[in-house]
């Protein structure tokens, strides 16, 4: 994806360069330009900051989801798991636990579910969709039973400061999101683990023939997903200053959509982490812009679906050429 150096000295070269730009980048570009013309507020500093802040939680689910999808898997338990981790985190804080303890509990829950997902997928060769559909039901049920359907409110300044605070003038939430991105990037592109992930989706048999313990890596991918979800729970809880038993139900589908819109495919280990970032931002910019324009909600609902379909159509047409 290092296309920035293409010499654009003739129309055909220009076209060739443009046609290599993935669908999601087109869409994000059009959205930004369109909204900027339609409403002056869109490109204002506070609004851009809003889009960034609102996208962080989704990004933290979409990053590990990219890796999982590259192994030809999927994790639909993330939204329910995020919810469960968030209510547990809130519960610990509400019972005078420290923020560190609460975060540890949240990460532990994420890790346990992630490991369970990974082990069922890797060892028992069960379809990832089924495994995570099952664990999703369990996480959803546990969150409901644990809270008896009530919100758990946390009046804790340290918690509120996680989402609202800033470090060196940069909002902490953005920093956490950036660190999560850079870390995942490093993991995927600069470690042996990452190389194996590309191979796991492309040709797992070759990998096991080479004597590599594919199962361990597969389990690690899902465990990473669980841990990131546990960390995202901190941001979610801080954002609401409370835990709510249905807060993030269904968010995994948004994450999957962002990943696929960003150019990662369900087959052959084709993944593009930066595309996932673009996909998350496209979803965020679309929702934000439509809100600024006060487009009726029913139209907004359809627009989100169209975003997904159009992004894939663009990539589909380019694939044919």
């Amino acid at each position: 994806m290092n296309d920035s150096t293409i010499a654009l000295n003739s129309p055909s070269a220009l076209w060739a360069g443009l046609s290599r730009v993935p669908g999601v980048a087109w869409i994000l570009g059009f959205l930004v330009i369109g909204f900027a013309f339609a409403t002056g507020d869109f490109l204002s500093g506070p609004n851009l900051l809003n889009i960034g802040l609102q996208s962080v939680i989704l990004l933290m689910l979409a990053l590990p989801m990219t890796l999982i999808i590259m192994t030809e898997g999927v994790d639909i338990s993330m939204g329910a798991l995020l919810t469960l981790a968030s209510v547990v985190l809130a519960w610990v804080l509400a019972h005078d636990g420290s923020l560190m303890l609460a975060l540890a509990a949240s990460l532990a829950i994420g890790l346990v579910f992630g490991l369970a997902n990974g082990m069922l997928v890797a060892w028992l060769k069960m379809p990832p969709f089924v495994v995570t559909l099952g664990t999703m039901g369990m996480a959803e049920g546990l969150a409901l039973l644990f809270t008896d359907g009530q919100s758990i409110v946390v009046a804790n300044d340290t918690l509120a400061a996680v989402y609202g605070g800033s470090l060196l003038g940069i909002p902490q939430t953005l920093l956490i999101g950036a660190i999560a991105y850079v870390f995942t990037h490093w993991l995927l592109y600069h470690t042996r683990f990452g190389t194996y992930i590309f191979a796991l989706g492309g040709n797992p048999d070759a990998l096991s023939l080479a004597g590599i313990r594919t199962n361990a890596y597969l389990i690690a991918v899902y465990a990473f997903g669980g841990l990131m979800t546990g960390l995202a729970a901190l941001i979610l809880t801080s954002r609401m200053s409370s835990g709510h038993p249905t807060a993030a139900i269904g968010m995994e589908f948004d994450a999957i959509a962002a990943v696929v819109v960003g150019g990662t495919s369900f087959e052959h280990g084709n993944g593009w982490l930066f595309g996932t970032l673009l996909g998350v931002l496209a979803v965020g910019a679309l929702r934000n812009g439509l809100n600024l324009l006060t487009v009726p909600s029913s139209v907004q609902v359809s627009c989100i679906g169209l975003l997904v379909i159009v992004a894939l159509l663009i990539d589909g047409f380019k694939g044919k050429k």
Partner: peptide, 16 residues
């Protein structure tokens, strides 16, 4: 298109 994603997009369009 991957069925999972195509029908997920359709879900939103139809809901809207």
């Amino acid at each position: 298109m991957p069925p999972f994603i195509a029908t997920y997009g359709m879900l939103w369009v139809v809901h809207g």
